[in-house]
Amino acid sequence: MTRPPEPVQVVKQRRDAALRALVSGVPYIGFLGVRFERLGDELTAVLPFQDKLIGNPLLPALHGGATSAFLEVTAIVELAWATLWADLEAGRIDPDIAETMLPRLPKTIDFTVDFLRTGLPRDAYARARVNRSGRRYASVQVEGWQDNRARPFIQATGHFLMPDA
């Protein structure tokens, strides 16, 4: 006797709402204009081009501070999302409450950015991989690209302090 599977729209609605709550809770994500696309539990961060992200108006090129912030945001959201996803799927949090609840975010301990190429004045994308996530500490790697997925323009690695459970 198994329960019938949940309708796909219900599942999607629940997951999208939780992700929206997580992302919209952080003002700085809105300031940069970053949004997240979700396929199952995989997130891709998108940084749509805006004039205010320019650091060198002569080239023009994206500001290294803007692109490194983009990667840091991606790493933090990925980490928080992994926890949120597990809780959501296990039914440990009420999806309706999740939408109004402020997310418990990991804190950055250190973040090292490797600027591989100039950021072009167009959209950028990023994905993070959690290499280790313990009870207290996590290590995350992030890669950002623009036109070609195989040609990253920026990569970073960081350590994070996990929020108290």
């Binding site: 809770g25 952080v26 003002p27 700085y28 809105g30 300031f31 940069l32 501070g65 490194s68 912030a69 983009f70 840091e72 945001v73 933090i76 402020l102 997310p103 418990r104 975010l105 804190k107 950055t108 973040f111």
Partner: peptide, 14 residues
């Protein structure tokens, strides 16, 4: 607008 942690009002590392 630069807040990274809405619980504390701390500016985002970015």
């Amino acid at each position: 607008r630069l807040i990274g942690d809405p619980r504390t009002g701390v500016i985002h590392g970015g």
